[in-house]
Design a protein around this nucleic acid. Sequence first.
DNA 1: GTGAAAGCGCTAACAC
DNA 2: GTGTTAGCGCTTTCAC
Lengths: 368, 368
Amino acid sequence: MKKASAKQPRNRVERRIDIRTVAEAAKVSVATVSRVMNNVPNVDSALSKRVWEAISKLGYIPNNQARALVSGRSRLFGVIISDITNPFFPELIQGFEEEAVAAGYETLIGSTNYDLRRMEVCVQRMLERKVDGVAVMTFGIEEPLLERLASQKIPMVFIDIAPAKKGFSAIHIDYDNGIYEAVQHLAVLGHRRIGFISGPKGLHSALAREKAFRSAIGSIGLALPDEYIHVGNYTTEGGSEGAERLLLLRKPPTAIVCSNDMTAIGAMHTASRLGLKIPEEISLIGFDDIGIARFMLPPLTTVRMSGREIAISAVRTLMASLKNDDVEKATYEVVKTRLVVRQSTSIPKGSLTGLSRRKTQNKNTEDE
Amino acid sequence: MKKASAKQPRNRVERRIDIRTVAEAAKVSVATVSRVMNNVPNVDSALSKRVWEAISKLGYIPNNQARALVSGRSRLFGVIISDITNPFFPELIQGFEEEAVAAGYETLIGSTNYDLRRMEVCVQRMLERKVDGVAVMTFGIEEPLLERLASQKIPMVFIDIAPAKKGFSAIHIDYDNGIYEAVQHLAVLGHRRIGFISGPKGLHSALAREKAFRSAIGSIGLALPDEYIHVGNYTTEGGSEGAERLLLLRKPPTAIVCSNDMTAIGAMHTASRLGLKIPEEISLIGFDDIGIARFMLPPLTTVRMSGREIAISAVRTLMASLKNDDVEKATYEVVKTRLVVRQSTSIPKGSLTGLSRRKTQNKNTEDE
DNA sequence: GTGAAAGCGCTAACAC
DNA sequence: GTGTTAGCGCTTTCAC
């Protein structure tokens, strides 16, 4: 018992404004409206004008779901990060989003909390949303998941992943340079006992930073007792804990290199709680150079790795692989790191040092 | 020159796996597949099992665009914030996202950089994505935009907006309580000259915090010269600048209340640069209690406003209005603030207690 | 250059 | 209970 032919526009008083409404108002076909909105060339400028007028008069907002459905492109990028609570990532996200929006893309964010298994869920969610590309900025990913991702034919960029992977683009961080500079800086200041607080076990970036540290220590010719390396987790709490361990050693380091700034901030806090003056009694170096690093007291000496630079690189890579028909073609970019010297590092205090408590009275320091 | 009837499934070797593929594999209809996926009751469990098996065997991922298009619900919430670079917001986002994901929703983030005009763009983008609701967490919005939003019939929550708006839900922050506690705390310590660094002019939250400060000062009976109020912008830079202005006054304040923690961190930095000891020579109080506040040196005394609490409240409000048919029914929640005393505040210098060096005056400090 | 019409992948009536 | 089918709002051939 249909009342009107489907062809006949229904005459309801209030109707959702869709592309047809606009077409009617502008007295053109829906195809033309579509063309105008998508800036397809060869549209009569008079029609085009009428269409735009109708659009703004009606306050028409195109339905992206529908556009995406038919065009196959969602104009959505996913970015997966480790921990939105670590200021490094918001800085990265900000850069990513600005770059993405400039290219007409929206950004979907997923956070794994440093739990690689949670990545599975994030990826699934992004795949369901049919993102046009995803940037995995977690500084590590598990092999099986990588395989699964490979089967989806969408562009992806990774940070810190083993290269030579089939068709995945990667952004490689040159940890060595910055970390070498950091260790060298400390060595030049006279430090001989340098500790290290790493990131969470198993995360590629954590391993890579530790390796860079070890090799810097080695090539400078310093000793590195096992006890000078503490496994942290990239958080202030981890840094706090790590510093406590390191500083209460019988023969504590005179300087600590931290895997990231949050760790360093936690370490500063603990050092101070233990009554140690920074940098006079303990030198501290961070990694990342997040915005607040230079506002710490004392301002934090740190290895700079620009989240913004990484982000921009990621978006560009994604955009490029979108344009590129050759799926297998992967790019490989390198982001450098470099030391930024501020005031959390100085020459180590000589043998006259006395820790406020009777923790380490046997502190003969000096070059052995 | 069509080759095959549209009805006939094409026999291509590689075919995108869609709901039909699954249906064929499970030997059921697409409707059944849909029902199974959506947990519609009254589906035969044998069929259901076959369907799930087919889904996982094929690695089928439903297309959310299509689901959204037909169902009218995108399962997407938008959240608009001011500045992702201020740690308060990531904390809020984290809470929001967790709560949203738990309810099966994805989160779209927009950042305005404290520029209310940029909000227009954010809102537009969200509307295009057909979000099911938006949380405007920018602590302020312009009237005309509000009107425009009203015409879209989607649920919205605001922070800090004038209540009594047609059908919009709001989360109200009780600034007064926390800020009064802060000022009182300072007054009890003996401070008589207390300065204030506000947020950006025109932002509701900035005004509200300033008003709360003024009224606290007034009710405690202290004087407040105009020059003791400095207009900041919620950033470390703003705090830095503000502190410089205030501290270089002929008769500088002995304590400064900052509109947020980032401002306080900037102020700490400047105070230290000017050679002032915190808290002995200048007491500083922040607002928000972001994660790193307690890791500052000295740990920052601040007024706590839980981003997570706000976020959860926002998601729940959104979910509620989604369920609720009555569009006009709006909820109104209140989030409290309270002082957290740490070590950036103490008796002003000049009071007789001779604290020669840095010394911890723990009273009700929350140090572990 | 413009319009008509065929779907994109899915859900929700409606029929059985 | 399960299957059939009509669209959701748009883009994109394909005619004209």
